[in-house]
């Protein structure tokens, strides 16, 4: 069992937890992910690692409610446990394999979308600890959904926050901010790392291609085992098929087929929707959802 030491609600649908998992905490690196399973009957849910404390043996995860399983997970409190917590999985970020002096010469910009802020944070923090200050753009639909602001501020070079509805700092998408920084403020970036919803990463990649900035994205497709066994997470990257779990999760964003990835993401939409209804409405559910025969 893997005990939850802290459970915190970051916004209506976003939650943060510190989980006791010493083996994972000891070996994990920025860019990697874990798989969590709540109980005997639960799903295996892949989540990116937001932070880790090697001494205390803690791993911090952040997740958003997207279906029945994550809704159930959101109800867990400090003191509760996960039956399974496995990792670290996937490859560490390219950054940590790059020579530090090389990195110091580079201007790096991160674009985080929504809950994608969580996996961006450990990378920015790692760079900061190695004397590299990267610019970070954090975008979200609305103020409520901006997370880890203070934490990010402490480790980022410049932090630019933007909201789609203009309810906080500025109005617009992350791509608008980047366009501005490059075109109007004359900033030059050698590397962009974008993590967030598929649609956001797709548009970041279209823009950075135009701007000539090499871009890394972190993919979070449907997975079952997370160790290369099932192939559910396969992606078209250039002319190759890659498994996000073992070849990724980070890929050259200019090579990823986002349209295909978005279609694959929809695969279990109906099942997820049904499971959600079943959970929310229980015995009182008697049709009307369009999915059942009653």
């Amino acid at each position: 069992m893997y005990k939850i030491q802290k459970a915190e609600r970051l916004s209506e649908k976003i939650f943060l937890m510190d989980v006791e998992a010493p083996r994972v905490a000891k070996h994990c690196q920025p860019g990697q992910f874990i798989i969590v399973k709540m109980d005997e009957k639960g799903e295996r849910i892949p989540l990116t690692i937001c932070d880790y404390d090697r001494e205390k043996g803690l791993v911090t995860i952040v997740f958003q409610i997207v279906g029945a399983s994550t809704e159930k997970m959101a109800k867990l409190q400090a003191g509760d446990s996960f039956s399974d917590f496995v990792g670290p999985l996937g490859c560490a970020s390219e950054l940590i394999h790059t020579d530090i002096d090389e990195l110091k010469k580079k201007k790096i910009v991160f674009i985080a979308g929504g809950v994608g802020t969580a996996p961006v944070y450990p990378q920015v923090k790692w760079l900061h600890e190695h004397g590299v200050d990267a610019d970070v753009i954090v975008g979200a639909k609305t103020k409520e959904l901006i997370m880890l602001e203070d934490e990010m501020k402490a480790v980022a070079g410049n932090l630019y926050i933007t909201t789609d509805d203009g309810s906080y700092v500025r109005k617009g998408m992350g791509t608008d901010v980047l366009k501005n920084l490059v075109n109007k403020e004359g900033k030059k970036y050698d590397l962009c790392i974008a993590i967030g919803p598929l649609i956001m990463m797709k548009f970041v990649c279209l823009l950075t291609k135009e701007l000539g900035i090499p871009t890394v994205v972190s993919m979070n497709p449907i997975m079952v085992d997370g160790t290369g066994m099932c192939g559910a997470c396969r992606l078209q990257v250039g002319d190759e098929i890659k498994f996000a779990c073992v070849d990724g999760p980070e890929f050259d964003g200019h090579k990823v087929d986002f349209d295909q990835a978005m279609k694959r993401q929809q695969m279990y939409k109906t099942e997820e929707g049904r499971a959600m209804l079943k959970l929310q409405e229980g015995d009182t559910h008697h049709g009307g959802c369009g999915n059942c025969n009653e």
Binding site: K41, E43, K263, A275
Partner: peptide, 30 residues
């Protein structure tokens, strides 16, 4: 890579390990 193409490993893992064929388990199998 179309939806509905599975490796046998994925299909069987969902059904056997995750017990998706049983209604009270959370993992889906179409």
């Amino acid at each position: 890579n179309a939806n509905g193409v599975f490796s046998a490993n994925e299909y069987l893992t969902r059904s056997n390990l995750m017990k998706a064929f049983k209604d009270d388990y959370d993992t889906p199998i179409a």
